[in-house]
Design a protein around this nucleic acid. Structure first.
Lengths: 346, 346
DNA sequence: CCTAGAATCGCAATCGATTGAATTTTTCGA
DNA sequence: TCGAAAAATTCAATCGATTGCGATTCTAGG
């Protein structure tokens, strides 16, 4: 590890620092410049063009902070990732980047900046601090984690906030997500159809969404008269940890499950590898189904069957609802249909 | 897909909107409140505590925009992901989330916000616009992509900017990254040692870093007298695309390579699956080595040998250098040693 | 009890852009 | 050519917090 010098930079000609300087350079008042730059109809076309050209020539752009203060808007949307149910979790989860990428694109398109924060809720006021800081015009929260209470409390006083995750009848906050209960049901039903009688659920049900997926599995098992066949293993979402946990779990010889419902594709991937290393063949010996249908699901060996959540549609909905809330509207939550994707692992 | 109503929210008691209101409520001047809240020594301990308590009781936090304007700082660092060499690329690459997570943690710890932007450089002024918008105190750019010229030009006038990626002797901008040439050399040498005489390089060398890795491979091959044994296949970083490309490439029967150097772990993953589906056994038939050593590399079947870049150290260095640049220092670039990690795929 | 000097606190300018109201300039019909 | 309406521009207040400087209060020594 060593340092290398960079070629040294060049100086630069004088620059316009604010709207006032640009104004006296153009021989008009600051107000006129402001209106010209913002395409106000109150300015004659010729001076507007003149000022715009001048601004372009000096590549001047009005100060965003000053504008924000006056307008009382920041032009930024906060995207929060609460890591409550899993302290010390590093988001190695590709789910986040997929969602983040979609949000970043859509927000940029709408002219908003994206402020990213990972929050590890130490106390109950973490969300209030962010809301009251006045740094964002609205908030998108990815996953309730185990913080539903906090979300509900804040949602009661702060409108421009939308949450990706599960939906419960009594919740106050506006959410977007797939029907996790139905998704879990779909997954378990699929395994049952394939002949599985003993099924393991891998995932930590403390997170709202995952708990709902588990309930869905339970319902499917009950319907099939297999209520006793479901085992829950609260595998962590962290890939490395899940790895050894799953291996240990599957070591329980004769009661080995015939099917695995993983709480996410990443957990499923961990399971696939653990199984492969123990010489257990998927899907012949054990069938595995994931959740999310990330791009990764196509890359596993064998290709992963999974429950698809349409993240593209989800991201679009999150932003649509948020913008409407910023505009003052009171929007309902959105629950999307999950879809069973059958590939090679079941 | 359907909507569900949320429970309606409650009203709230009157709230302090600014420092002035808090001041008259406390019977002091706004200036005093400001000083009290910012722990200025010019205020007596008792009034300071009194005001702080009052602020806490009304959970009042001074407006960030106003503060920013006055202080001439935003408290935010921009993180940019240029997607130049690959139009339409969706960052499904776990590399980004790994880096982003590390940066988010470290920046939060330093009291900075993180503003994320994905940029698809349409013209040559994309970076100037961001710099001049005045929305951030500094910039971290992840990967030069094919935009080195733009980076150099802007670096000449804008100091608080650090780039993750490759380093060239003539570059103007400050960069942090591993020695890609040496990394490529390491990868190819390892395969050569294992007996490979025909090696394929998978990755698009238009991106600076990847081009350097390729050069490293070339050097290793030349040293071993195998200059003719290297084939380059410009596989896209996009997982799905890489998939079919790689499969097509490996269909070229008798000249099939004995080893594959993938430009990243994600590309390597694609290769592994393509091989597996064609019944080609790794490492017996073909050896595969990746680059990055992401968490994913532990989850592939078989576990992926790879060239490790210490992203934790890298992220820390990016931020350290950036903060020093913000403070006015002129920092050199940092080149870290890559490390060969041998697992099961070679 | 008086006063120098330190400890607190208030006053008012400032950051840079926006915008309603006032003012000046232009336009155009009579 | 005059004057009123319309168009263009200027003026000045405002957003909310920070901070140098001046004013006031307090402390303590003589």
């Amino acid at each position: 590890m060593f340092f290398r010098k960079n070629v040294s930079p060049l100086p630069k000609p004088t620059k316009i620092r604010n709207i006032k300087e640009l104004a006296e350079l153009a021989g008009v008042s600051p107000g006129t410049v402001s209106r010209a730059l913002s395409d106000s109809g109150l300015i004659s076309a010729k001076t507007r063009e003149r000022i715009k050209d001048l601004a372009a020539k000096h590549d001047f752009r009005p100060n965003a902070m000053a504008r924000n203060l006056r307008i009382q808007k920041t032009g930024a949307i906060g995207v929060l990732i609460p890591l409550g149910h899993e302290t010390g979790q590093h988001i190695s989860d590709p789910f986040f980047i997929t969602m983040l990428g979609l949000l970043a694109d859509a927000l940029t398109e709408q002219g908003y900046d994206l402020m990213l924060s990972r929050v590890i809720p130490s106390d109950t006021g973490w969300l209030d601090r962010i809301v009251d800081s006045g740094r964002v015009d609205g908030l998108i929260i990815i996953g309730q984690s185990d913080q539903s209470a906090v979300l509900d409390r804040v949602a009661a006083r702060y409108r421009p906030m939308v949450v990706w995750g599960g939906h419960t009848p009594q919740q106050v906050h506006c959410s977007v997500g797939s029907d996790n209960f139905k998704g879990g049901d779909l997954a378990a039903s699929h395994l049952i159809e394939r002949g599985c009688k003993r099924i393991a659920f891998l995932g930590d049900p403390k997170a709202l969404e995952i708990g709902q997926r588990l309930e869905g599995c339970r319902a499917a098992m009950a319907r099939a008269g297999l209520s006793d066949g479901l085992t829950v293993f609260p595998a962590h979402l962290v890939a490395e940890a899940a790895q050894s946990d799953i291996a240990a779990f599957l070591g329980t010889g004769q009661h080995r499950p015939q099917g695995i419902v993983a709480a996410s594709d990443v957990v499923a991937m961990s399971a696939l590898r653990a199984l492969s290393e123990r010489g257990i063949v998927v899907p012949d010996d054990i069938r595995v189904i994931g959740y999310d249908d990330l791009a990764l699901a196509e890359l596993t060996v064998p290709r992963l069957s999974t429950i698809r959540q349409d993240l593209t549609k989800g991201a679009a909905a999150l932003i649509d609802l948020l913008l409407r809330r910023i505009a003052g509207e009171d929007t309902p939550s959105l629950v999307m249909e999950p879809e069973l994707i059958v590939r090679m692992s079941t």
